[in-house]
Amino acid sequence: MRPVHPAARSVACVILGVTMPTTITRLIALGLVAAAAAACRSASVAGGPGLIQPGAPGQEGRTVSVADATDLSKVRFTPADVRFMQGMIGHHQQAIEMAALLPSRTSREDMKLLGKRIDVSQVDEIRMMQDWLRARGQTLPDPHAHHQPGATLMPGMLTQEEMARLEAATGVAFDRLFLEGMIKHHAGALTMVRELFAEPGAGQDGDIFAFASDVEADQQMEIDRMGALLRELQR
């Protein structure tokens, strides 16, 4: 089912295309050459008509080799992309830890549901980010690394003291702390996306581009929803 290598066909075309010496054979040759030309035309279609790369508007295009056309080495992931994915895993993990506090500390059903949503979506995204790193042979971070003393926290992440304060709270006080913390946390994810796109060469990998764009859209949406909940609490 794979396309036939065009070189294999062009060899046959060249052999058939050799002209014959005598007058008598010339007539036969004409027929042969015509047949060969037809065969070569269709062959070149079957094997691929060659790759054309147009130029910028107003510029001429050019023929490119398969190797050049498929050389994506310049748009591969960069260290910044890897750092983004690695950092986002720990970032997401903290959201899961925060959401895990909800069932025992809030009495609001809408808050519990919010927590469940955060939990499933962040768990699934962590898995996806791990796949992305694994497929590129990159180091998988320990999702709990941020618990270690002196660990570098990604933007928006709660410090150990802030987490402790959240854990100690209950009722409406907890709800408020949770929403404020999660809004700050999600805003940090937006910062991470902005910083990623501010790094030269980052976000060129198609998958990273799609993921970062979606993180931006999703987290902004959740920030807006949590903001509305928070205003409701403060009424």
């Binding site: 050389d71 992931f77 960069t78 890897v82 750092r83 720990g90 042979g137 990159q138 998988l140």
Partner: peptide, 22 residues
């Protein structure tokens, strides 16, 4: 690249970013 500093979760380190294979 190992940011945040963390023990690799049982996975070998891989190629440099930007290197083949595509």
């Amino acid at each position: 690249l190992a940011v945040p500093a963390a023990p690799a979760a049982g996975q070998p380190a891989g190629p440099r970013p930007g290197t083949p294979p595509a």
